[in-house]
């Protein structure tokens, strides 16, 4: 057992190295004076400087966030409703419903991209940020629905019965018990939708119109036009920094929101009556 652990741990750390070496090389090269990202020729910030003066990138970033926010809101609403429907009702309709969402989840991006492109062409819809938003919402719905469904699967049905038992009607039961308990799942689904939307390249590439470039599409264009442009390294480094910070921040937030004993103990220590005013 010990030997197996040691060996597998060796494999694991090697793989982590494999994961991080390309990224480290990329980050290092973003500070390299050499235009071709070859050997180290000195430290520079000029690529970052150039990046900040590229207003097209800022425009693309704006587009990306606009689409991501819209798609997240739309897909959270649709996905949550879908998850509730699937978990609450059984039968052929919900089987098909789940099948649709699941199939869409496993379908390769390129197929979603091409089919939506052909669809938009067929119905004569001009490619624009709107089509990007529609496409993003479509693939995000599946992810949100799965995230909320996961939460619903762990959901203790007795809680709903308890709520009804204590005099709540179905509507009150939903808002006072089910919704607050599903909120973490919905938030996780929303987070996932937001990041996926920001990161998506393939689908966007097919359905975006002129002037509706998102950041990944812009980056792709830059890579294609001038390979090894260190400016892309700089941009990538910044994007990675932002995601890492976002992940760390969300972790910290989760930790601080966890029910720790301290606030509860503090409230309990208060003299009677005052505790009553603290609560919500």
């Amino acid at each position: 057992m010990k030997r197996m652990e040691r060996r597998s741990r060796g494999v694991f750390w090697t793989i982590l190295l494999f994961f991080y070496v390309p990224i480290v090389v990329l980050v290092v090269n973003s500070f390299n004076t050499d235009r071709y990202c070859g050997p180290w020729k000195g430290f520079t910030f000029k690529w970052y400087d150039r990046l900040f003066h590229d207003h097209e990138i800022w425009q693309a970033l704006g587009n990306t966030i606009e689409v991501a926010v819209g798609a997240t809101v739309a897909s959270v609403v649709l996905g949550t409703l879908a998850a509730l429907a699937i978990s609450k009702f059984k039968g052929k309709i919900q089987g098909a419903h789940y099948g649709l969402l699941y199939t869409h989840l496993v379908l390769p991006d390129i197929l979603m991209g091409i089919s939506l492109l052909l669809f938009f062409i067929s119905i004569g819809l001009e490619l624009s940020l709107l089509t990007v938003f529609l496409a993003h919402t479509t693939f995000c719905v599946s992810y949100v629905a799965m995230a909320v469904l996961g939460r619903l699967e762990d959901f203790d049905g007795a809680l709903l019965e308890a709520s009804r038992d204590l005099g709540a009607n179905p509507w009150q039961t939903f808002w006072k018990v089910q919704f607050p308990l599903l909120l973490p799942g919905i938030a996780a689904g929303g987070m996932l939708a937001f990041t996926l939307s920001i990161d998506d390249f393939v689908i966007t590439f097919f359905v975006n119109g002129a002037g509706a470039e998102t950041l990944p599409v812009k980056v792709y264009g830059m890579i294609k036009r001038s390979p090894n442009l260190p400016e892309i390294n700089a941009l990538s480094t910044l994007m990675m920094l932002v995601t890492v910070l976002a992940v760390v921040a969300s972790r910290m937030m989760q930790r601080s929101r966890n029910p720790s004993a301290k606030p509860a103990a503090a409230a309990a220590a208060l003299p009677e009556g005052q505790g009553g005013r603290i609560r919500r």
Partner: peptide
């Protein structure tokens, strides 16, 4: 509960 996502997915997945 079912119609919104079901219709959306039909429109933007099944039809395409």
């Amino acid at each position: 509960l079912t119609a919104p996502s079901f219709l959306w997915m039909t429109f933007f997945f099944v039809v395409p």
